[in-house]
Design a binder for these strands. Sequence first.
DNA 1: CGATCACGC
DNA 2: GCGTGATCG
Length: 470
Amino acid sequence: MANRPFDLELAAFTLDPNDREPSMSRIVAKYLDIELSEEELTPALLATLAGKLEEVLTKELKDKGLWTVYHDTELALVPVLARIESAGVQLDVAYLKTLSTKLHAELLTLEEEIYGLSGERFNIQSPKQLQTILFEKLGLTTGKKTKTGHSTNVQVLTELANHHPLPGKILEYRHLAKLLSTYIDTLPKQVDSKGRVHTTYNQTIASTGRLSSTDPNLQNIPIRTDIGRKIRQAFIPMEGCVFLAADYSQIELRLLAHFSKDPNLLEAFRTNEDIHTRTATLIFDKAADLVTPDERRIAKTVNFGVVYGMGPFKLATDLHISMKEAKSFIDAYFARYAEVSALMQSFETTARDEGYLTTILGRKKTFPGLSSKNRVVYEATKREAMNYPLQSSAADIIKRAMITLDEALREGRYTSRIVLQVHDELVLEVPRAETEAVTHLVVEHMQNAVQLEVPLTVSVGIGDSWMAAH
DNA sequence: CGATCACGC
DNA sequence: GCGTGATCG
């Protein structure tokens, strides 16, 4: 491993990922026990403290078993991310401009229809003004949730759409307006002279160790709707190249199988079954070939719910069912996946009694909320604890893959390069001639980043846009 | 600047 | 569960 400089920010984050903004004065206070304001902490003074800080933080990292994750993963990832950011990714700006013109026209039409249905002109983007129209003027029966008023979110509007034509139009309007303002009209402003956008990846924001992406955020580019997919078509490889998109399939559920050793989960993944169908067979107690699409959909949501620490409330809202029904699905799930149930309880008790949880690479995080007497705080923290080892281990794994893949690409003198990371997916820009070799290399490094109790499978696609590569 | 909403994994 | 960002007031 190359000799790398010390990185105070990464070291402090690895020691305590809950510390959202570890300013220099906080780090100095915390590890050197010297109370100084940010102003008193001049560059000259900092320089004199740097050596001592490195010494103390290094010792702390080693004492807590965090040196390896800090040094071999976080620090090693820095130059990899620098290369990704510097490479950037090409956008088809002309295409986005055309798309923008077309969608703005549609938005205008929608706007007029909304004013027609409402009987007046108002700011559709103002939830407050919208409330007045929907709930006072049209007297639509909300029945639904409120906080500082009536909610007008997707869930509410979808329900109201059964009773009046307006809410549906509002939903369409919101969707279009969102995609236009966040992506279609914004991304073209952020390209460099070669038509490429360069995001910034932050390693010290997400307490799970996931990366985050800003200016622009390339980790929340739409994909679920038709218009969303049109936006992904704007991400294109440079001349002579294709995109190779590789993503881990169900990495968090595979980690759940790995950690819990639940026989049902292990078998499903070892025999390469459809995991959502398998869950459906268990919670609905019927053979796989009798599982209906609707039951599979429910099982899929339940599987997602487990990864997120599943509360009945969230599951009920997601599935549009009663709390009672949601509860019965959860109970059925844990009855049939008994080892998963035990694992989730152990996450809670370990986090509370030992004070922290550990990921597959030895990353650690504490859960102070588990000392809270406030039930809401406690339950929320419990869900964090249930999700952390899964989400965070997944982050560990893709980071390892990125480091060794990047090294192999350079070692092998390939021109191919990673251009995007989206939590469980890597996108590479690959010269056509390298396609076959690099496909193998990517799969190799992603699948073997760690060894689990179940196969870690990667699905790969190749195409002339990010969309086409899926 | 907090609240609301919506996009991704 | 974890994020970023547009918009309103």
